[in-house]
Amino acid sequence: MSAVRALVDLLAGRRDAASLAPREWDGVISVARAEALLGTLSVRLEGAALPAPVAALFADQRAAAEIAQRQALWEAEMARRALAEDAEFVLLKGTAYAAAGLSCARGRQIGDLDILVPWHDIGRAENELLEGGWEWVKPDPYDDAYYRDHMHELPPLIHKARDRMIDVHHTILPRTHRKTPDPLALVADAVPTTSGFAVLCPIDMACHCAAHMLADGDLQGGLRNLWDFHCLAGDFVAADAGFWGRLDARAAKHGLRVEVRRAARLARDLYGTTLPSGWDRHDPGDRWYRRRLLARDNWGGASDFLLQQAFYIRSHWLRMPPAMLARHLWTKWRRR
């Protein structure tokens, strides 16, 4: 069995860790690292029967993930202090999951700090962050202008002392994207966490997770995003039996019904998410997504080159209209 399949089955709880031969762990660990899921796997298999070296490695990963999470929340606190007191901002993705204490946060690797700020506040937020010690990462004027004119976020900023990146979003998909979710609704309906941060409300969080995975980018790191979706759905259904219905209506409002439905089906197929009857259908197109999500060889390397390229092209196709795409590729190609 392939290592990436074994990883997915272990996460889903379909396979007993004790059934792996010692050397099968080689591939599982490499693939989990490549997919940023090693911390998640080590939490999922805490207490399972594991070979001693694997148990020791997983204990390291759990401890490291806990520290990394504390550091990520500290970074959010730093942003809060840098931004004006009355500024509204909403945590997104990994930091939001950690701040809200959601189950996918356990062991989860958190990269940059992602925040959402209303469009009318974006200039002010940028100034305050620059005064607070963040600096622009991309000195290239084309890239800078590209971010400002077409993207859903500011050019990335990095803190000069702590060396941590912040992505300041004003919406959740590029401005030129075919799908245009409603950013005002995202901010207006955000909910507070016990630690005093704001995060997206459950249905928006699930919409963002699906949009991020399926509409923005080429599905790289998709297994991790899909695990987030699987866990979010589990957490939110447990708290609210009407979650799926509300999610459907919200996805329709944001124009993300296709993405949310597909995310749900993929989560069911790979991680065993329980779906309500209306959602539980089969779409022949899903198999390409499943193949793309599982495109890792037993050494953690990318496999299925053509499919990866196809998804890469698709991501650009979704992100900008054809004429603009041509201009963009031409500019990028000329400066190679």
Partner: peptide
């Protein structure tokens, strides 16, 4: 120890 799972993987390609 051929039975011991690897902590780290290196690829030369």
């Amino acid at each position: 120890d051929p039975e011991r799972p690897a902590d780290a993987t290196v690829r030369l390609f």
